[in-house]
Amino acid sequence: MTRPRFFFLVCPDPQLLKAQIDERLRTSGQDGWERKPFWADDEEPLPQTFWTDLTIKSLFPQPKALILRRAHTLKADYWDKLDASVKGLGSDIYPFFCLEGAWSGKKAPIPPALSRRGLFKKAKNEGWIWESPGLDQRSLTDFVKGWAAKTGLTFEPGAGQALTHALPTDAVAARLELDKIELAAGDAKVVRKEHVSLVARTGEMPFFDLMDALGQPGAEASVWKRVIDDHSKSAKDQMLFNLIGFLASQARMYWMLAHGEKPAGNPYMLQKKAPVAKRLGAAGVARMIDLAMEAELSLKTGERKYEEALDMLMAGLIDLFRPKQQLRRH
């Protein structure tokens, strides 16, 4: 077997993890991988299906990539069991262990419970580890170049550098911004300087991008990161009441678009929102208003604390905006 028997990815950014796993599978020498995600911080971190896939050879020829997210939360006894289980892996199983803890400086956050285990020492000796603290201004340049090469886009002079400086350093949020740029580039496939104005002007996801992310599979991490960050802010800087007001204006816009009317606004953004409005329909827009009103009322009556009201509102919005075939996180 020419590829690694298993692989560790040490990075807090889910979009970069996904890109690395995609590349590892693409260059594995095998095709048709079935990706099976598991979550180490679930109530049952490693269910029986995980162990069955890991240790019992399947009768079917399709190879499986077992992707263990948030593996840095596993306790020592799980690493002991994994240490023994990965020694006899066949070529049809490829485990990926995603260590997603926050970095402190330049040192990769390897849990002590893992660093002493044989499977990690083996991975370290063989080079079966990829480490990244996430995007920064330097690595964003390569990130944008890779995106442009993959999408077949070119830049007019100065546009690439301007875009790199404008993008957020969260890869999920950056991908959402780049999706907007790709649409704006159109059939000409050229990114122009004026397109950069479509990118959010701050590193924190603004409400417009928050709404876009609600329906994007894989973007939940950015949404919940914004929510968790908001929990720690002072009352005057928290977003719930501003978000409720924003939802009211968005509901009016979606209602008009769903009924064939033309609300005022940027033509590009309205064109982007139209399919969402059609999918929501009158019932979806009504549910959007209900969620906002429920959040406001529950907070004012003392039924819920601030954090609970915001969490419930965001969970309801994600469920509302996500295409219904997307039922599980990936």
Rank of each mutant, 00 (worst) to 15 (best):
T2H: 02
R5G: 15
D13I: 01
D13E: 04
I21F: 11
W33I: 11
W33C: 13
P45D: 11
P47A: 13
F50P: 07
P61S: 05
P63K: 08
K64H: 06
L74I: 10
A76D: 15
L82P: 01
L82A: 00
A84C: 04
A84N: 05
V86S: 10
V86T: 12
Y94E: 11
P95E: 12
G101Y: 10
A102K: 13
A108K: 11
A113S: 11
L114V: 15
S115Q: 10
L135S: 00
T141R: 07
G146A: 12
A148M: 13
L153E: 03
F155A: 06
E177T: 01
L178I: 03
K180V: 05
E182D: 13
A188V: 08
V190F: 09
H195S: 07
S197T: 10
G203M: 10
G215E: 02
A221P: 01
W224M: 07
I228F: 07
H231G: 07
K233S: 01
A235L: 04
I244W: 12
R252I: 15
M253W: 03
L257F: 02
P263H: 13
G265K: 06
N266H: 11
Y268F: 11
A277M: 09
R279F: 10
A282W: 06
R287M: 09
M293F: 08
K300S: 14
T301M: 09
L313S: 13
G316M: 02
F321Q: 05
R322V: 08
